[in-house]
Nucleic acid binder design. Structure first.
Length: 259
DNA sequence: ATGGCTGAGATCCTCAGA
């Protein structure tokens, strides 16, 4: 049986609930990984997803951040937060086993401005994340780490090559190196693996300055796969239609299908 | 160099996003 796994930074699940339910009804993912739910666990709209047959694991937080795993298969072995990062109180990582796959929903810090404290926090988060993912590689599982990485790994992944040369956030050398270290360690970027040369393949468009209308986006949401998961990869796409809706999230859902 | 949009939550604005 094929398994469809999707990731979506929804920028508030309570505001976006109608959009997400509509997309889920059409796309029918077996596993949906959410970021920026921006609510505590007790205010997450559980029933709406349970009615559709999803099991739910949450790492919520008031106002900011928050990640979730929704799965048609029962959720087992749930891990909240990176194990080597106990002092970090921001809800940015959740992992669980769903059937034959281990999955994680990750929301890497934005970093705000290169050189700022938040940028240092972003790079520190990557150090913890990368250490954990290298450890997981040794388990030899089909593991999919998906979410908003807030990094465009190569120039082709942004509409504006100047942004890369100017060391802007999402594009700076250090954050790109941090993301690419995950790839070099053995993970496969699902979408790029299947569309190696495709331009204008974006997952996020700024709300401001008519970026969506001008298709001025960046590819910053990724599904990263262990070799065991990559061997099962059949298809991966961005669904850009939800980005065009009224009151849309600034991110589009990205998905992959596995055999 | 700046500003531009959106959401949350507390006040009529600030913080944060990216």
């Amino acid at each position: 049986m094929e398994t469809k796994i999707a990731t979506w930074n929804v920028n508030s699940i309570r505001v976006r609930l109608p959009h997400v339910l509509k997309w889920v009804a059409e796309a029918k993912p077996h596993i949906l990984l959410l970021q920026e739910i921006k609510c505590e666990d007790h205010t997450f709209p559980r029933e709406a997803f349970e009615d559709l047959g999803y099991n739910i694991a949450l790492a919520g937080q008031k106002t900011y951040n928050g990640v979730a795993i929704l799965s048609r298969e029962p959720l087992e072995d749930i891990l909240i937060g990176l194990p080597n990062n106990d002092e970090d109180t921001q809800a940015r990582y959740i992992e669980a086993v769903c059937g034959k796959f281990r999955v994680a929903s990750v929301y890497v810090p934005n970093g705000m401005e290169v050189g700022s404290d938040k940028y240092a926090y972003k790079l520190a988060f990557f150090r913890h994340l990368n250490a954990h993912l290298e450890q997981r590689l040794k388990w030899g599982e089909s593991f999919i780490v998906a979410g908003d990485y807030n990094v465009a790994p190569y120039e082709i992944d942004g509409y504006n090559p100047v942004a890369f040369r100017q060391e802007r956030i999402l594009c700076s050398q250090k954050e790109r190196e941090a993301l690419r270290q995950i790839l070099y360690s053995g993970y496969t970027d699902a979408l790029r693996a299947l569309h190696p040369l495709q331009e204008h393949l974006y997952t996020w468009w700024d709300y401001r300055a008519g970026s969506w209308q001008a298709n001025q986006g960046f590819r910053i949401d990724h599904l990263l796969l262990t070799p065991q998961a990559a061997d099962l990869l059949i298809q991966s796409e961005v669904d850009v239609l939800p980005r065009s809706a009224e009151k849309a999230s600034d991110h589009a859902p990205v998905w992959a299908v596995f055999s």
